[in-house]
Amino acid sequence: MIKVQNLTKKFGEKTVLEDINFTVDKGSIYGLVGFNGAGKTTLIKCIAGVYEADEGCALIDSRNTFTDAAVRAGMFYVPDDIWFMPYSTLEKMGRFYSAYYPDFSFDTMDKLCEVFGLNKKAKLNSFSKGMQRQAEMILAVSAQPKVLLLDESLDGLDPAKRNIMNNMILDYSAQKECSVIISSHNLSEISDICDRVALIDGKRIVFDCCVDSVGENRCKYRLVFTDDKTPEDFAGFDVKKIKCDGKIVTLSLKGDREENEAKLRAMSPVLTETFPLTLEEVFLEEMEGSEHDFTEIFS
């Protein structure tokens, strides 16, 4: 089990992560989403022991990942910027990792190479970016870790390989009770394979919930009123997004659905439509300022 407690990380005077708390159970796949530069990679590196947290800590089975090297022997970190030894092959990298991972399985590596169609004797620097990612994932799973940290590891894969990769992660996690943390910008993919998802907004986690219940406390409505409405008319709601077009109002609300709907009914709309929110919509709503009028810029 991964437990992050009050983790704070600063780069000089700039606070990148502040008071981060979450838990990943055994066999659970946890998704980390956030805009570019939100701190996803920094958080994963703190968990991996690459960075030392300024406050708080990351624990795996109650052992600090930075100070306790033995716990890292059961954890594999797949960074976004992959590195292989110069002029090495999958075989050679397998031997490198086998020195540090006691349960490294060359059998698993061979079989996975067949599945992904990679030649384990070919030079890794001759692989494309996607193939290198596949190679790194093969090595990661072959190490048979209890914890897998994947930092944008699924990016750059073609749809077929991505599908295989997703299935591999799901099966491995289920079979080995491996805790997995994945960071990605592909929100639909995150929602497909992750049990829980957390959104990092600059410094903090703004929400952390099960994928299934992402839209539980959120709902999107389109309402038609008899008279024109302004955003001030909805001041009593926890509005995430609102667009008033005369009598037609489109808004996204956070909070208890029944309560919100009751309040909306009290405003006597002529027409009410309800839409559940996808993870992407929730993400975009949380990332303010994502709408721009480029016509002004390019005119």
């Binding site: 090297a69 954890m75 970190y77 910027d81 992959i82 590195w83």
Partner: peptide, 18 residues
């Protein structure tokens, strides 16, 4: 001195001092 190499070595199951 490089991010990609230090990512690997510091995440391995060997302490920094060793």
């Amino acid at each position: 001195l490089k991010k990609n190499t230090s990512n690997v070595y510091y995440s391995l199951g060997i302490s920094r001092s060793r």
